[in-house]
Design a protein around this nucleic acid. Sequence first.
DNA 1: ACCCTTATGCCAACGTCGTAGACATTAACG
DNA 2: CGTTAATGTCTACGACGTTGGCATAAGGGT
Lengths: 235, 235
Amino acid sequence: MPKKVVPEEARRRRRPTRQGQVLSERLIVETALRMLREHGSSGLTARRLGAALGADPSTLYRYFAGLDGLTRAIGEELMGRALDAWRPMGAWRTDLRALGLAIHASYLAHPQAAVLTASRVTGRPREIAVDEAILGILREAGFTDADAVGVYHAFIDLALAFAALDAGALALKDEAREADEEMWTSTYARLPAETHPHIAATAHLLAGRMNRSAYPLVLETLLDGAQARLAARGA
Amino acid sequence: MPKKVVPEEARRRRRPTRQGQVLSERLIVETALRMLREHGSSGLTARRLGAALGADPSTLYRYFAGLDGLTRAIGEELMGRALDAWRPMGAWRTDLRALGLAIHASYLAHPQAAVLTASRVTGRPREIAVDEAILGILREAGFTDADAVGVYHAFIDLALAFAALDAGALALKDEAREADEEMWTSTYARLPAETHPHIAATAHLLAGRMNRSAYPLVLETLLDGAQARLAARGA
DNA sequence: ACCCTTATGCCAACGTCGTAGACATTAACG
DNA sequence: CGTTAATGTCTACGACGTTGGCATAAGGGT
């Protein structure tokens, strides 16, 4: 095995691949994202990625410690894009909402990648930057440290959990374009009222709602709760 | 390939395996759950499961349409166990909280299995039974149909999303017993206050909190929101 | 301008995986 | 008690992640 993965910033010799491609961590991650979109969340293989890069599969192990390391780098990239898309304005509630939606949107923009990465904590720089930003917003808004940590915990886990869940649904819909989206208008709508009266009575409402994400609503509820706690403390 | 998977209720000939084991869907699912616990979430392979059952790997394809079908059956089993453990008492808020915690606990009791299944909607009977129960609680508590559907949507997605997220963390902790649990006491605690003042200031609080689940707190916040909406409607 | 070192890419190979198809056997039905 | 078809087993294929050894050319030192 390549004894050691050379960190990106220490790379000096950039030797082109047989087909002329010059590799880099960034290029590999971006190519992986494209492959995930095109071939689905199980379509990211060392061999295919190597082929797409015009490089031997084993070359990847000079850049990442196994496909798992590549996966973590992809997650870090998605979190970084969320951070880049976010513009804090100075009002804690508005900023938190925007950040939560940015994270959610960034993952959902690459559902197949999100499925692989959203439930993994990487501990890499951009992810830590997000954590620092959230805690900063809360502490500067006047939350006690204990409250800030509590809200932070709920906020970040909620964003990641829903990113993973909704990405899973979206990726499934893309890959197996079969019945999944229509489940709520077919399977559930067909349940007889005798055995499932409540589903039958609300089937028309379910069909319109279950194909969207519950995240915005739940996030708003969480912010309500936080605001109430802040008000109680301030009073 | 086995031309067709015979549904469990239509099985008549129960031919024992070479090593005397009599197979059934139930036995296979339970064995798979045990294997997942013992070998981790990537340790469920047709060959290993076959060996554990004393049967040829390809036999499994007479019972499930690929490992994916087996995975869905495992998810249905976990949801069924949550339903069995749940005892509704007649008070909507208490019952919803108990059901949410039961789902969460059922998945977390088998984290390695939950990782594979929690983000997949199966549309199988016990899962539908849970949906019917939730909608029933809400509608009989006096929520309008529109509000009931909204709360239902948030509730079930929240339960599944956190089950998946927390199971992922738990499974990782079991499998790679390395640094992951101590990340909050090592990586994050070591960040210098100059670059990450807010993390540094709250590191002692984070360490104690991030290794627990935020689900109970978020669930309570969601129930608060639902109760407020019910009160507004009733007034 | 030239070496020398060694980082980097390539090759060949190993063991494992999911799963398909043909085959063997035995349980259940008439 | 014979027939038949459901069920378990065997064999095999192609793809996978990953490794160790090797060739080569990039970059630094002089």
